[in-house]
Deep mutational scan, measured.
Amino acid sequence: GATAVSEWTEYKTADGKTYYYNNRTEESTWEKPQELK
């Protein structure tokens, strides 16, 4: 299949934890999204 550009962006909180934000759905998660595995 075609490689889609991930909708997920990786961010870090002030205390250094990583989370992921989906630009399309406006969803955020602590877990690494399936698309990034």
Score class of each variant (00 low, 15 high):
Glu10Ile: 10
Pro33Val: 02
Lys17Glu: 08
Thr3Ala: 13
Asn23Ser: 15
Glu27Pro: 00
Ser28Trp: 15
Ala14Glu: 10
Leu36Tyr: 13
Leu36Ala: 05
Arg24Val: 14
Ser28Glu: 10
Lys17Asn: 06
Thr3Asp: 13
Glu10Gln: 08
Lys37Glu: 14
Tyr21Thr: 04
Gly16Met: 02
Lys32Asp: 04
Tyr21Asn: 02
Thr25Ile: 03
Ser6His: 10
Tyr21Trp: 08
Val5Ile: 12
Ala14Ser: 11
Trp30Gly: 04
Pro33Trp: 02
Thr25Leu: 03
Thr18Ile: 14
Lys17Val: 10
Asn22Gly: 00
Ala4Phe: 09
Val5Gln: 14
Arg24Met: 10
Gly1Pro: 13
Gly1Trp: 11
Tyr19Lys: 04
Tyr20Thr: 00
Ala4Tyr: 06
Lys37Val: 15
Tyr19Asn: 02
Trp30Arg: 05
Ala4Asn: 13
Arg24Pro: 02
Thr13Gly: 10
Trp8Thr: 00
Trp8Ala: 00
Lys12Ala: 05
Trp30Ala: 07
Gly16Tyr: 01
Lys12Pro: 02
Asp15Glu: 09
Ala2Leu: 14
Tyr11Asn: 04
Thr3Glu: 12
Thr18Arg: 04
Thr29Gly: 03
Asn22Ala: 00
Thr13Arg: 03
Glu27Met: 08
Thr25Asn: 03
Lys32Ile: 11
Thr18Trp: 05
Glu31Ile: 12
Glu35Asp: 11
Lys32Thr: 09
Val5Leu: 14
Lys12Arg: 14
Thr3Gly: 13
Asn22Val: 01
Val5Glu: 12
Thr3His: 13
Glu27Ile: 07
Lys17Gly: 05
Trp30Lys: 04
Lys37Gln: 15
Tyr21Phe: 10
Tyr19Arg: 05
Gln34Tyr: 11
Gln34Lys: 09
Thr13Pro: 00
Trp30Leu: 07
Ser28Gly: 11
Thr18Phe: 10
Thr29Asn: 03
Asn23Lys: 13
Lys37Ile: 15
Ser28Gln: 11
Lys32Ala: 06
Ala4Trp: 12
Lys17Asp: 06
Glu31Asp: 10
Asn23Glu: 11
Tyr11Asp: 01
Thr18Asn: 04
Arg24His: 09
Ala4Arg: 05
Gln34Met: 12
Ala14Ile: 11
Trp8Lys: 00
Thr13Glu: 02
Asn22Ile: 01
Ser6Glu: 10
Pro33Asp: 02
Ser28Thr: 15
Asn22Lys: 01
Asn22Met: 01
Lys17Ala: 06
Glu35Cys: 15
Pro33Lys: 01
Asp15Asn: 08
Ser6Thr: 11
Ser6Pro: 12
Thr3Leu: 12
Thr25Trp: 03
Thr18Tyr: 09
Ala2Gly: 13
Arg24Asp: 05
Glu10Thr: 09
Lys12Met: 11
Asn23Met: 12
Lys12Tyr: 08
Thr13Ile: 02
Tyr19Glu: 03
Leu36Arg: 03
Gly16Asn: 04
Thr13Cys: 13
Tyr19Trp: 14
Pro33Thr: 02
Thr25Met: 03
Asn22Phe: 01
